[in-house]
Each structure stands twice: as structure tokens, then as C-alpha cells.
Design a protein around this nucleic acid. Structure first.
Length: 886
RNA sequence: GCCGGGGUGGUGAAAUUGGUAGACGCGCUGGACUCAAAAUCCAGUGGGAGCAAUCCCUUGCGGGUUCGAGUCCCGCCCCCGGCACCA
């Protein structure tokens, strides 16, 4: 499209490229996108998910995220809110590092290049970010504070009595005073007296305290991604594969850093009920947290007390055998000489199988008898102990009681190995017989064969048994979660260094906050190793340090996974240049929590869970006054390419905003993105759809162009009332639809208004309304369009409607006038037996009786009513009359 | 299997609390303009019957509630997303 307009005749199409070139610098100069800071105004914080700049740049799929939030931001600016709409770069992480290795360059350089391109594209689509607040998580000014929060977690412990994180110094004081006796200790942490505590060396104390810290280092079986050459968090493993690399993960036991997110399981679950998020994301988080209520019960064995967890303590009398995970620590001791070779072979085979194959292969039960027996505490019965890989060491206690009558897995196992099946639960009034069963009966029912509990109904069974277990010391009620602690260390270069130094004398020593940041060294070689050791370990100048007191130490060489960076970045935007703290408290108090957070659904249990966790820790430690960071979350639907496939470079079907904007203009791109379907629905890109959006804008532009030459005839009061009514109805619809995230119907409303304008025209002549009202109509349209198609709106407003120098987006949002919406007459539908048979135009204020009479008198319904008895007439004022005949 | 979300024309989709199903767009058909095309404008467009007025059918399937159901209830089928030997 050229900007040289034909001088003689009026142009037939508008030159979108010229408008874009003209208005972009104008808005920049005006500071239109700068964050509002008028303390008298209310605020809106509207945020897009922290993007990861990649070499591929943005596709139109990203626009489905950025355009709607931009429209909402512009809308709230016009509604006179202070709007914070920032953007930054989630810059650390594997993709940039891998790309840099491949291209033999530095990841920082690549990120700079990629993010510059993202910025260019974001500006292209007129996303109204405040670039003064741009942040980059890989800059020392930023990651310094990621390290600071790491240390905050390190110096915090979770007090289960108060359900709150507290400073570790308070725990030390309590241990000094009274040991662990008053603490609600987690089962896996050994109790301690104050005397024992005082006798401990500094290193021993540090080791003991790591049982409590919210950031701790521990040896654990972890997910090793052999392609990325690093460990991954559980949340990053999808179907047994690394979420980015797609490689099958391997089990490795390594010393790793974790965040104790499990301490917050209950709060992370409960607070989901307080936030406005898509149900699917909440469901995924609930599912991930995986809460189960049940009981722990102790069975005596020759290797010691064997604790099991069950959600069905009411079936304890039906336990006919026990099953341990092959890795369970009791296995060697429980295995009898006769069984030794079988057990050893089974354990070895289980070890060979990855998590993947263990679950992917058939669910056929396998297992082997240990030769030992356990004592069922409820009936003093000796039951055989087996091992089988369907029991997982990581969940519960790694051991179960098997109740084949009432659990399908145990049933299959019992049938396969010919173990007894005993029924202890029955449906009321029915009898079950083991020999008749083809599957377990896992439902709730009446207890039978359960000593003095026989006859206990389902509604009371579980709670009564738990109470009895607690009274008799055989067990206790317990809540279990599937969620594991968050593994944060990565054996890679391009991440936030973990601010810890390891020493011989004192164990791990945290870096003092005033010595942050621990800088990531700039080095030419940073390729990952095969050994599970970070490439930083090979850099002596980084590793070897001397503490202020002269103690030699070795720096922690793992870096943090990028989800640490993105777990607090939304706080940083409130005061992005703050250099005394991660954020300015006042600024955070004003801007947070986020009013609207938009991004893809793929972060359901990663970023969105981690951020909630960090926010709760910050809340507990008094740094923020809210417990949930994202009040309202929306996920944009996926945008498939024209071939119904996901857009990807390898398929060659990526559509870029650059290409669309070049052909149709940015406004048309934006209109189509918004109009293509409901915001949250998956949709397919249709080139013809952009043409439709473009046509809509053209049609509006042509009306504005013709304003100067139009003639106005036959003004009529009635027609003008109708015209005004349309204007106000459209203001109302667009306003409500934008508030509801219903961009497609907001645009449909504008299209209807435009069609109405065209109905008022006969060629260049406008019929029924005055020039003044016609102009008002165009002005209303322009203002409603301005957040959606800002370039055309600005052009029409300033150049064609004669408001030069007045930025249309600086005007307040239009209010609708209820009075103008009023109509004198309305259509009412006449139904006979619920079927549409006629219509009636009646005064809006008609009373019910008259409406009924008018309907009955209507000739349209005569033939449906004639000769039949009228049984009933339903009158719904302003809507319909339904005549029921028999 | 469990959890969440869906199923409406040729097509993307609309439809406050149950109250004219298919707004708006795309596509298609016809017309105007043009030497012609593109663009634009005007008219039509759920399916079926009929010259017509008009009538019948229609929101995945089967029941139900109701004067009235896309919407509520019960039972199915199918699609998408997530989780899954979690005791």
C-alpha cells in the first residue's frame, strides 16, 4: 500500500501503513502508555505471562494473548484508572542456552537480540506496554533479588502449629529452650531435646535445621533429563519426558536443592476457592496437589514397625497380605533365605525399569513373596508380606495393606498369586461372596467380618475406625498429598546462581544479603556435563571463595531453574528500578494483587503453582499483604494454523503478525484476532477472516470520508430517536462485553451499528437524521473502536471528524444513557401451545390484560385457536403471550 | 478409570433469570457499476414441501420436568484438555 494518494479523486481505500507510521510516534511522544500515577485514581494491574524470548519471534498465536490484554488496558485507561501494563523477559533458561551453544555465542547476546525482536513485534501490533518498566530476569539487578528471596526461604521454616513460615532464628531459639517437644514435627524428622541440640556442632545444627528450612539441600531420587543434561522438577516431567526436550527422563540419586512447597499444600488447595480462575486450571492444581484423607496404621514385622497409609481404614479387617515397594528399606531384612534369590532378581529388575516403562507397560501385576509376615493390629492376624512395583516408594509410606475384596489392584494381585480374598464391606441388604467376584467391590457399604464394628454403616465407618485406632494406639488419622517438594537446582550455566557456599567446618553457609548478587561468571565455555555436575564447577575463580572470617569454601555450582525467576517477577514491575529491596513495599501494596493475568494453560501446575507458593511465603514473612497474586486468570485459546495444526517452525505453517500487518494492517489484525471466536476457545486461522475485519474497517473509514460531502434529507424525530437508541445500545453492549472478555460480540455490536449507519444512507444521502446527529454517531463509533483499532480511530477522530490535537484515547470512555434506550413500542410474540404463531407491536407500557386481549384478538392465531378450548393464557410482559389450547 | 471443558447452518460462531434459535463475520447465489476483472454497493442464504400465502422439521442421542427447553433434571454417545497402579 503506498502513501501517495490520488490527488484528483477521493481515495477509495485508506492507507493503513501511512496511519501507523503517523500515529505511533505521536502516542510515544504523548506518553500514552506510561503507567498512570495519579494517587486519586483507582488502579488496574493487567499482566501477560512473562514471555521467554526465542529466535522464532512472535506468531499471530501470541497476539491472541497480547491484543486482548492491550484492549483491556486501553479501556481501563479511558475509564480513568491508573493502569500498570508492563512486560519483561524471562531470559534465563535452557532454550537460550542451548541455542547459544549451537550458534557458538553467548546466551546474554542472544536474549538481547531475541527480546529486541519481540519488542519490535509488540510495538508493531500496538501492544501498549510501559517500556520504562521493562525487566530482564538474567540481569544482575534482577537476579540479585531472586537470590535474596532464595535466602529468605533458606532462612525460613514452616511452623505447623501456626500454619505459617517464620524466621529460622525463632526455631533455633525454641530448640535451645525446649527442643522439639512443643513442635508439630513431621514424621520423618527426628525429635530432639534441648540438651541434644546444645551438644551439636554448628555443622550438625545446620544439617538438622535443613529438615525445616523452606529451601534445603537433600539427596533424593530425581528426574534426570539426558538431553538437557540436568535434573528437572516433577512439574516439568510430562508423560515421563522432559517438558521441553521430550527426552525420557532417568532416575538418578543426587544432592539437590528443593523448596518445601509441600508445607503449603493445604493452603494452596484451600485458597483456590477464593480466586477467579478457569475451572480447568483449578482442577489441575487440585489434582496435582492430590489430597487424600485416611489413616496411618502400624503393622509389626521382624524388621520393625511397618507403617502403612490407607484411605479405607474401614477395610482393615479385610487385609489378607501386605505389599512393599521394591525399594522399601525393610525389604532386605524381611527377605528370608529361601526367598532371597527371587527377591533380589525382582528388585534388580524393578530398578532397571524407568518410571516410564514401569507405568507404560501393561498393568499386569507382578510381585514376589518375601517369606515374612506382618501382624495386623486390628485382629492379630499374621499376613504375608510381598513386594511389587505397583506400590510406589514416593507416595505414602511405600507400603500398603492389601484388601483384595475392596481394591481392584489388590484383587488382581490376589487372583494372580492365589492369595485369600475376604469380604468386609457389603452393600446394605446384600451379600457378597469371594468366589463370585470378577472384580473388587470398592464402594462404601456396611462393615462385616470386622469384629465389634460389624453393622457400622458407610457414613460412619471411616471416622469411627480412625477414632478407635487413635484410642488404642494402633494408628491415627492422616492427610496425604501427592505433590512433592519443588526441585530447583539445575546443572546448567544459564541461570541464577544459588547463593550458598559449602565449607568443611560449618557445612553450607548462606551468602550474606549485602554480598549479593553472586554474579554468574562470563565465560566462553559453559557446555553441560554428563556427570550431573554443573559447568560452573569447572570455573575455579567462581568456585573457590574465602569467607570473611578466612574460612575457605566452595560455591554451590548449581543454578536455579527459571521458574524461580518467574515466581516473583510480577512484584518487580511495581518498582522495577528499586535497588534496596526486591520491591518497594508501598508500590506493591498499591498495585498488587494483579487484577487480570493472561497466558496459556500450559503453566497450570508450574509457574501458576510456584508463584502462589512464593506469594504465601512472602505473606507469612510480612513482605506482602495478600496471599494470592493473581485475582483473575484467563487462558487464551490456542490458535491453530490454516492446516488445523499447531503453528511450528518445523511444519512451516507459522503466521507472523508482521506478514499479516503488511498486507491488511495492524488494526485489521487486531480486529480479526478479537473477532475470530470466544477468547478462551481454540480457533483456526482463516485468511478470509482478516479480509472481513479489513472490510469492516474500510467501510467505517469510507463513511467518515464521505462526511464532508454527504447531504441530509427528511429528518424525522422518530428516526432520530431510533438512531440515538442504537448509539446508546451499542455503548452499553461494547462496555459490558469488554468487561466480560467477550471481544467477539463487542465487535459484532460495532458491526451492527455500522450496518445501521449504512441503512441510513442512500448513496451519498443520509435519510432521516440531521448532520449533527450523524456526526455524533460517527464520533461514538470512533471512540468505541479506539481501544480495538487505535490507528484508524485516531485518524478518523483527529483528521476526519476535525478534532486535531485531541488524542481520542485520552477522552473518557462513553457512558450510555438509559433514557435514550427507552422505546415506545415493542414486539411481542404470540405462541399457541408454545409454538410461534404471530407477532404484535404494542406500546411498551401496555398492561397484561390488554396485551392478553390483543393477542387473543389477533387474526394470525385464529386458525390455531378456532374450535378449541382455551385452557390457559400465559403473559410474559414485554416478551410474549402463550395461548394454551386443548 | 478419575477430574475439567465441550457438541448449535456449508463455515467461525451468537443467544441475561427457561421466553421469536442461528445475531455478527466468512463463504456462496443473484443484481448494479466496469470493455473486463478486482474492489465496492444492493438483495438473498438452516433443512424440507409448495406457484404462493403458508406449513413441517431442526441446537450429539433417548427420556423427563414445564404453558414453553440450546438453556433445567435423568440415562447414554462422541470430541478436546489434564491426571493416572497415588493405596
Amino acid at each position: 500500500m503506498s502513501s501517495q494518494a490520488d490527488q484528483s479523486a477521493p481515495a477509495s481505500r485508506y492507507d493503513f501503513a501511512a496511519l501507523e507510521a503517523k500515529w505511533r510516534p505521536y502516542w510515544d511522544e504523548l506518553g500514552l502508555y506510561r503507567t498512570g500515577n495519579d494517587p486519586a485514581k483507582p488502579k488496574k494491574y493487567i499482566l501477560d505471562f512473562f514471555p521467554y524470548p526465542s529466535g522464532e519471534g512472535l506468531s499471530v498465536g501470541h497476539c491472541r494473548n497480547y491484543v486482548p490484554t492491550d484492549v483491556i488496558s486501553r479501556y481501563y485507561r479511558m475509564r480513568n484508572f491508573n493502569v500498570l501494563h508492563p512486560i519483561g523477559w524471562d531470559a534465563f533458561g535452557l532454550p537460550a542456552e542451548n541455542a547459544a551453544i549451537k550458534l557458538k555465542t553467548n546466551p546474554a547476546k542472544l536474549i538481547a537480540k531475541y527480546s529486541a525482536n519481540y519488542k519490535r513485534q509488540m510495538n508493531l501490533i500496538a501492544a501498549s506496554y510501559d517500556w520504562d518498566r521493562e525487566i530482564n530476569s538474567s540481569s544482575p539487578e534482577y537476579y540479585r533479588w531472586t537470590q535474596w528471596i532464595f535466602l529468605l526461604l533458606y532462612h525460613s521454616w514452616y511452623d505447623r502449629r501456626r500454619d505459617q513460615a517464620r524466621p529460622i532464628t525463632e526455631l533455633e531459639a525454641e530448640l535451645e529452650r525446649s527442643g522439639t517437644q512443643e513442635l508439630k514435627l513431621p514424621a520423618e524428622v527426628p525429635a530432639l531435646t534441648s540438651t541434644q541440640w546444645r551438644a551439636m556442632s554448628l555443622a550438625e545444627r545446620r544439617r538438622y535445621l535443613s529438615n525445616f528450612r523452606l529451601a534445603y539441600r537433600a539427596a533424593s531420587a530425581v528426574n534426570w533429563d539426558p538431553v538437557e543434561k540436568t535434573v528437572l522438577a516433577n512439574e516439568e516431567v510430562i508423560d515421563g519426558r522432559g517438558w521441553r526436550s521430550g527426552a525420557l527422563v532417568e532416575r538418578k540419586t543426587l544432592q539437590q536443592w528443593f523448596f518445601r512447597i509441600t508445607a503449603y499444600a493445604e493452603r494452596l488447595l484451600a485458597d483456590l476457592d477464593t480466586i477467579d480462575w478457569p475451572e480447568s486450571i483449578k482442577a489441575m492444581q487440585r489434582n496435582w496437589i492430590g489430597r487424600s484423607e485416611g489413616a496411618e496404621v502400624t503393622f509389626k514385622t521382624t524388621a520393625g514397625d511397618l507403617v502403612i497409609f490407607t484411605t479405607r481404614p474401614d477395610t482393615l479387617w479385610g487385609a489378607t497380605f501386605m505389599v512393599l515397594a521394591p525399594e522399601h528399606p525393610f525389604v532386605p531384612q524381611l527377605t528370608t533365605a529361601a526367598q532371597r534369590s527371587h527377591v533380589a532378581a525382582y528388585v534388580a529388575a524393578a530398578k532397571e525399569k524407568s518410571e516410564q516403562t514401569r507405568t507404560a507397560e501393561t498393568r499386569d501385576k507382578t510381585g514376589v513373596f518375601t517369606g515374612s509376615y506382618a501382624l495386623n493390629p486390628v485382629n492379630q492376624e499374621q499376613i504375608p508380606i510381598w513386594i511389587a512395583d505397583y506400590v510406589l516408594l514416593e507416595y505414602g509410606t511405600g507400603a500398603i495393606m492389601a484388601v483384595p475384596a475392596h481394591d481392584q489392584r489388590d484383587f488382581e494381585f490376589a487372583r494372580k498369586f492365589d492369595l485369600p480374598i475376604r469380604i468386609v464391606i457389603e452393600p446394605p441388604g446384600q451379600t457378597l461372596r469371594p468366589e463370585d467376584m470378577t472384580e473388587a467391590w470398592p464402594h462404601e457399604g456396611v462393615m462385616v467380618n470386622s469384629a465389634h464394628f460389624d453393622g457400622t454403616p458407610a457414613s460412619e465407618a471411616v471416622s469411627k475406625v480412625i477414632a478407635w485406632l487413635e484410642q488404642t494406639g494402633k494408628g491415627s488419622g492422616r492427610v496425604l498429598y501427592k505433590m512433592r517438594d519443588w526441585l530447583i537446582s539445575r546443572q546448567r550455566y544459564w541461570g541464577t546462581p544459588i547463593p550458598i557456599v559449602h565449607t568443611e567446618a560449618f557445612g553450607e553457609v548462606p551468602v550474606a544479603p549485602e554480598n549479593l548478587p553472586v554474579l554468574l561468571p562470563e565465560v566462553p565455555n559453559y557446555e553441560p556435563t554428563e556427570t550431573g555436575e554443573s559447568p560452573l564447577a569447572a570455573i575455579d575463580s567462581f568456585v573457590n571463595v574465602t569467607l570473611p572470617d578466612g574460612t575457605p569454601g566452595r560455591r554451590e555450582t548449581d543454578t536455579m531453574g527459571t521458574f524461580a525467576c518467574s515466581s516473583w517477577y510480577f512484584l518487580r514491575f511495581a518498582s522495577p528500578r528499586e535497588d534496596q529491596a526486591p520491591f518497594d513495599r508501598q508500590a506493591v501494596n498499591y498495585w498488587l494483587p494483579i487484577d487480570l493475568y493472561v497466558g496459556g494453560a500450559e503453566h497450570a501446575v508450574m509457574h501458576l503453582l510456584y508463584s502462589r507458593f512464593w506469594t504465601k511465603v512472602l505473606y507469612d514473612r510480612g513482605l506482602v499483604p495478600f496471599v494470592e497474586p493473581f485475582k483473575k486468570l484467563r487462558n487464551q485459546g490456542m490458535l491453530l494454523s490454516y492446516d488445523n495444526q499447531k503453528m511450528s517452525k518445523s511444519r512451516g505453517n507459522v503466521i507472523t503478525p508482521d506478514a499479516v500487518a503488511a498486507v491488511h494492517g495492524v488494526d485489521a489484525l487486531r480486529v480479526y484476532i478479537l473477532f475470530m471466536g470466544p477468547f478462551e476457545a481454540e480457533t483456526k486461522w482463516e485468511e478470509a477472516g482478516v479480509k472481513g475485519a479489513s472490510r469492516f474497517l474500510q467501510r467505517f473509514w469510507a463513511l467518515a470520508r464521505d462526511l464532508a460531502t454527504a447531504t441530509f434529507v427528511e429528518p424525522s424525530g422518530e428516526r432520530e430517536r431510533e438512531f440515538r437508541r442504537m448509539l446508546h445500545a451499542t455503548i452499553k453492549r461494547v462496555t459490558h462485553d469488554l468487561e466480560d472478555f467477550a471481544f467477539n460480540t463487542a465487535i459484532a455490536a460495532l458491526m451492527e451499528l455500522l450496518n445501521f449507519f449504512y441503512d441510513c444512507r442512500r448513496g451519498q444521502t443520509v435519510v432521516g437524521v440531521t448532520a449533527g446527529l450523524w456526526r455524533e454517531g460517527l464520533e461514538v463509533f470512533t471512540r468505541l473502536l479506539s481501544p480495538i483499532a487505535p490507528f484508524l480511530a485516531e485518524e478518523v477522530w483527529q483528521e476526519m471528524l476535525g478534532h486535531r490535537g485531541e488524542c481520542v484515547q485520552r477522552l473518557p470512555w462513553l457512558e450510555y444513557d438509559e433514557a435514550a434506550l427507552a422505546v415506545a413500542e415493542i414486539n411481542v410474540v404470540i405462541q399457541v401451545n408454545g409454538k410461534l404463531r404471530g407477532q404484535l407491536t404494542v406500546p411498551v407500557a401496555i398492561d397484561e390484560e390488554r396485551l392478553k386481549q390483543a393477542a387473543l384478538a389477533s387474526t394470525q392465531i385464529k386458525k390455531f385457536v378456532e374450535g378449541k378450548a382455551i385452557k390457559k393464557v400465559i403473559v410474559v410482559p414485554r416478551k410474549l403471550v402463550n395461548i394454551v389450547v386443548g
